[in-house]
Simulated assay, not measured.
Amino acid sequence: MLSLKRRTFKEAAFDQANNLLMLAICFATLYPIWYVLVNSFNDGNDAMRGGIYWWPRMFSLDSYKAVFANDGIMLAMGITVAKTLVGTVVHVFFTAMVAYAFSRRELIGRPIYMVIGTITLFFSGGLIPYYLLIRDLGLLDSFWVYIIPAMFSFFDLIIFLSFFREIPDALEEAAKIDGANDFKIFYQIILPVSMPVVATIALFHGVYQWNDYFTGMIYINKSELQPIQTYLYRVVAQSSSNQMVAATTGSIAKTVSSQSIKLATMVVTTLPIVIAYPFLQKYFVKGFMIGSIKG
């Protein structure tokens, strides 16, 4: 009886220690976001004094007014929305179509293709050869540099493949008896019954497209084609925030600073995906479980 109580006490202590550890990790993760948010809503000049940790000392929306008054950030937001929508649809459709072909046992050379695709998960040609390829394809300073190179992902193909292998062969056999070809089977049977994995891959790639700043930084020189994350990089790492402050007129100019402009821009660029992610997380979990449980 004593040993049972002692074990129970150890388990309770272990649980409490885990709870404290998880709370510390959550705080370390969330507080930097809260700090940025609080300081972005504070008067810019007052925030330069420091000492703002939990609540705005002088609440002000002027930094956000200065951000939204800038035409560049709204254009960058439009580019980001467009490339996220177009890129996600193209990526899901193309990757699903290739994965369906890989799921066919009669595909000639399938083992070789799988080996080649697996190698690409661990090795790449490097940035310089990739840049030269993008240049030779004529995709520099083009909107399609966001879409075409990201049309296919072998990692996403593996997820699709795991799901497609669970689809009963009887569905396809019945469709072939009715005279359907492979394209009709894919469009009218495979895709409709694969909505869980389609939603999962769409969320994976949509988050990637929204957060991608590197493509715009390396392959785009035209400011009108840069996405919002690249714009954020310019604001934080370069002198764009000082230029926005200089361009601000009226009473707003007296209450903003380069630092407050940076913080407000960070909130504007990250808030949409931060709000959407908790509602979409269940699809990520479901996607990871695809193919792991049978029956």
Rank of each mutant, 00 (worst) to 15 (best):
S3W: 04
L4Y: 11
K10H: 12
F14I: 10
Q16L: 13
A17T: 13
L20C: 13
L21R: 11
M22A: 14
F27V: 11
L30W: 10
P32H: 09
P32E: 03
N39K: 13
S40E: 07
N42D: 15
G44M: 00
G51I: 11
G51T: 09
I52P: 05
P56L: 07
M58S: 13
D62A: 09
V67E: 01
D71S: 14
G72V: 00
M74K: 14
A76L: 05
A76N: 09
A76M: 08
A76T: 05
V81H: 05
T84Q: 02
G87E: 02
G87H: 00
T88W: 06
V89R: 02
H91D: 05
V92D: 00
A96D: 07
R105P: 04
L107P: 02
Y113K: 06
M114A: 12
M114P: 06
V115D: 07
I116G: 06
T118D: 04
T120F: 02
G125K: 05
I128T: 06
I128L: 13
P129L: 08
F143R: 08
W144E: 02
I147V: 12
D156W: 10
I158K: 01
I159T: 09
I159P: 05
L161R: 10
E166F: 01
I167P: 04
L171V: 03
A174N: 11
D178L: 03
F186D: 08
Q188S: 15
V198E: 01
Q209N: 12
N211M: 06
I218H: 00
N221V: 02
Y233N: 14
S239G: 10
S241G: 06
S241K: 08
Q243H: 05
A246K: 12
L263P: 04
V268P: 03
T270K: 03
P272M: 07
I273G: 06
I275Y: 08
A276K: 02
P278K: 08
F279S: 03
Y283L: 08
K286T: 11
F288S: 09
I293R: 07
G295C: 09
